[in-house]
Write a protein that binds this DNA or RNA. Structure first.
Length: 570
RNA sequence: GGCGCGGUAGCUCAGUUGGUUAGAGCGAACGACUCAUAAUCGUUAGGUCGGGGGUUCGAGUCCCCCCCACGCCA
């Protein structure tokens, strides 16, 4: 038994995430967490909402609510949806927590003590009407190059020319529309990532077997151009962690907050504290402090490729730069993007399926199965309704669901709703057990390597073995001449249902729980010994014929959904 | 423009450090079976491995050039 710390990239607070967001970190992390728990390991799986920054402020303003209230409400919404998808977080925290505020301020202090923070004076566009500095993308004006009238402060979307906000003709705030703007001087803190470049690179070079996607992105940022750049960690905003040196004020930084990218990853740690403070655990340091028991913890992070630079560079700079014994990540599993029907998912245009809508039309397991078995591991992958329909109908309904149905119904009709006795296992049974053992071991290997698509394929192949076996021994034929032998065959098949429910549970937890219940299974112990596991339900053990475990998606539904989610979410 | 990831059977994708007849699932065709959610099982399907050049006894798998798609960046 080992101890596994797992985190998935924390979703931003403003709004409901789409399936691409879900499959890019939380869902695979949940799969891994569930698998490890099923194998008897001790797991702490943490996630949270990322709440600070301008987008949250703007979304709150749009909703006409104070930003703190808005975030609290959205946290509830995201929390409910996570439950809906059966994401098994040990705790779902918030980056706006008191714990994170203190920890972030602590890290800033020790980084400053270690000479890794410097002050920079810069001029920035200030909007008097909004009472705030405006980031480049909140300023629009006419492009001096091509005359496009909605050029952003940093770039013209029309001619792609790189711009400086001061170059814009008639610049205005996109928040209020105000044109009363001026350049003001402001001071910011920068994290001296450049000073840590060699140490970070050395650390990354010692990471074995990381996905190409992860290391190639990290290497690019380390060595591209002038190398790893220092990065601002403060902003002129109200909503965020106030800039302080630990408990003490930071002269010259009054009224500023830490930039969201700085405090968000620290929330991984703070979330452990929240977990304890919520009464769900009693010691977070044994997960996070290598001097307090976290030495034997294996820490795995899950994230989309857009988050890789923060997790391979910025956050490690924070951790290593602190000089304190915090647990560093051991393995980073990163994902490409899931596209939607020939294009991108789009939150702003409402293109694609969002988490709430998905659960409105089908149970979580249907989504979990398709998404996980098509997770964009090696390259971007694509959601199409045809593929979704075929994956659900074929894999879940026909191969797995129907197997449980045909076996239990046959038994009920020829014997009773209990495991029948008689007969002896022969060659066919021995072959099935050998094949199944090999397949289960293969499945375990892929799961441990977090090769999710391959794991899904192996799992599906294990389901197919059951159908092959039935087809070969044909108990419906055997029964006519040798009912005892048919009983032995169906006894094995009934036990297969239980075994499938156990090993499939990380992918499709609800359906598996239903199947285990139908089989009146008393435990869900992992089949380390497949032969033994196939006698777990003894002769005479009662069961209940399960309801339709997975229903099929009709062509009419598919067409309707295809239409409904094509664009424009209200 | 720079960089990154890709371009393998109709579709979605596998293909370790280069090595016998390039694989899987879906779809399609044919056959078997009838217990089951008109489900299952079997067989078949022959793709210039984006294009060109090179290294090698031998390359989808290494090197160079080009084309295409997607993404990121300034």
């Amino acid at each position: 038994m080992a101890r596994h710390l797992i985190t998935s990239a924390i979703p931003y607070i403003n709004g409901i995430k789409h399936l691409g967001n879900l499959v890019g970190s939380q869902l695979p992390a949940d799969l891994y967490a569930r698998y490890l728990r099923a194998r008897g390991h001790e797991v702490l799986y943490l996630c949270a909402t990322d709440e600070h920054g301008t987008p949250a402020e703007l979304a709150a303003a749009k909703a006409g609510k104070p930003v703190a209230d808005y975030c609290a409400e959205m946290w509830e919404v995201q929390s409910k949806l996570a439950e809906g998808f059966r994401l098994s977080f040990d705790h779902f925290g918030r980056s706006s927590s008191e714990q994170n505020r203190k920890l972030t301020q602590h890290f800033a202090k020790v980084l400053d003590d270690n000479g890794l923070i410097r002050e920079v004076s810069e001029t920035q566009m200030y909007s008097k009407a909004d009472g705030r500095f405006l980031p480049d993308r909140y300023i629009e004006g006419t492009c001096p190059n091509c005359g496009f009238d909605s050029a952003r402060g940093d770039q013209c979307d029309n001619c792609t020319k790189q711009l400086d906000p001061v170059d814009l003709i008639n610049p205005h705030s996109t928040i209020s529309g105000s044109t009363d703007l001026e350049m003001r001087e402001t001071k910011h803190l920068y994290l001296r990532q450049s000073a840590m470049k060699d140490q970070i690179e050395e650390w990354i070079d010692t990471r074995q077997g990381w996905p190409v996607l992860t290391t190639s992105i990290a290497k690019k940022w380390l060595n591209d151009g002038d190398g790893l750049q220092d990065r601002g960690i403060t902003r002129d905003l109200d909503w965020g962690v106030p800039v302080q040196k630990g408990d003490a004020p930071w002269p010259g930084m009054e009224g500023k907050v830490f930039y969201v990218w700085f405090d968000a990853p620290i929330e991984y740690i703070a979330c452990g504290q929240e977990w304890v403070d919520a009464g769900k655990g009693d010691n977070w340091e044994r997960w996070w402090r290598t001097d307090k028991g976290a030495d034997d913890v294996r820490y795995t992070q899950f994230m989309g490729k857009d988050n890789v630079p923060f997790h391979t560079l910025s956050f490690p700079v924070t951790i290593l730069g602190s000089g304190e014994p915090w647990k560093l990540v051991d393995y980073i599993k990163s994902f490409n993007y899931l596209n939607y029907d020939g294009g991108q998912f789009s939150t702003s245009r409402g293109r694609g399926v969002f988490m709430d809508q998905a659960l409105d039309i089908l149970p979580a397991d249907y989504w979990r199965w398709w998404l996980l078995s098509h997770v964009p591991e090696t390259s971007d992958s694509e959601f199409t309704w045809e593929s979704f329909q075929s994956g659900v109908n074929k894999d879940l309904a026909d191969v797995l669901g129907n197997f449980a149905s045909r076996v239990t119904k046959f038994c009920r009709s020829k014997f009773s709703e209990a495991v029948p006795e008689g007969g002896t296992p022969g060659e066919a049974e021995a072959k099935l057990i050998a094949d199944l053992t090999a397949k289960v071991r293969e499945y375990e290997t892929h799961m441990e390597a977090i090769e999710i698509r391959k794991a899904a394929a192996a799992l599906r192949a294990a389901w197919v073995l059951g159908n092959e076996y039935l087809q070969e021994v044909a108990p419906w034929t055997t029964f006519k001449t040798d009912p005892e032998q048919a009983a032995a065959q169906i006894r094995l098949a009934l036990n297969l249902i239980r075994l499938y429910a156990v090993i499939s549970s990380p992918f499709i937890p609800d359906a598996c729980a239903d199947l285990l219940k139908a089989m009146h299974a008393e435990d869900a112990e992992w089949p380390d010994d497949v032969t033994a596991a196939l006698t777990a339900l003894p002769v005479g053990h009662a069961f209940t014929v399960p309801d339709v475990t997975f229903r099929k998606i009709t062509d009419a539904e598919r067409e309707e959904w295809q239409e409904r989610f094509a664009g424009k979410r209200d």
